[in-house]
């Protein structure tokens, strides 16, 4: 299975959290909440493209509304493969960090 990059991981988590509401603007906000950093839309959309190509998310169009200049929203949804990838990412993360705590790191102890 293909691994996730850091940003992909964060985007996946954002999509997962947002559930049915996952589209560009919201995802950007979520990513900002998680990382505290504003990403450009074209960076995010490159990531979306990448995730779709890897088969972790899929997209479908919403209804057109007047707010967005008549353009439809693109909603993203996690696929089963995406869920598996996210789980694996979590497991790998836990394995990497194990029982290390911030407290321990700062004090230089295991």
């Amino acid at each position: 299975m293909k691994e996730l990059t850091k940003l992909e991981e964060v985007v996946m988590i954002a999509i997962w959290r947002l559930g049915d509401m996952a589209y560009g603007v919201e995802i950007k906000k979520q990513v900002y909440e998680i990382l505290g950093k504003e990403y450009f839309y074209n960076t995010l959309y490159t990531t979306f493209d990448q995730l779709i190509r890897k088969g972790f998310i899929n997209k479908n169009f919403g209804e057109p509304s007047s707010v967005r200049g008549g353009k439809r929203k693109v909603f993203f949804r996690m696929t089963e493969m995406g869920e598996l990838a996210l789980e694996e990412a979590f497991e790998r993360q836990s394995r990497v960090w194990g029982s290390i705590t911030l407290d321990g790191l700062q004090r230089g102890e295991l």
Binding site: Y23, G24, Y41, Y45, T46, D49, R68, K71, K73, V74
Partner: peptide, 22 residues
């Protein structure tokens, strides 16, 4: 911005930008 994005989801992209801009 849309032309520069190289995404094949032009509509979603442009809409998102516009929405946030509003």
């Amino acid at each position: 911005l849309n032309r520069l994005s190289h995404s094949n989801m032009n509509e979603g992209f442009g809409g998102d930008v516009e929405e946030e801009f509003e």
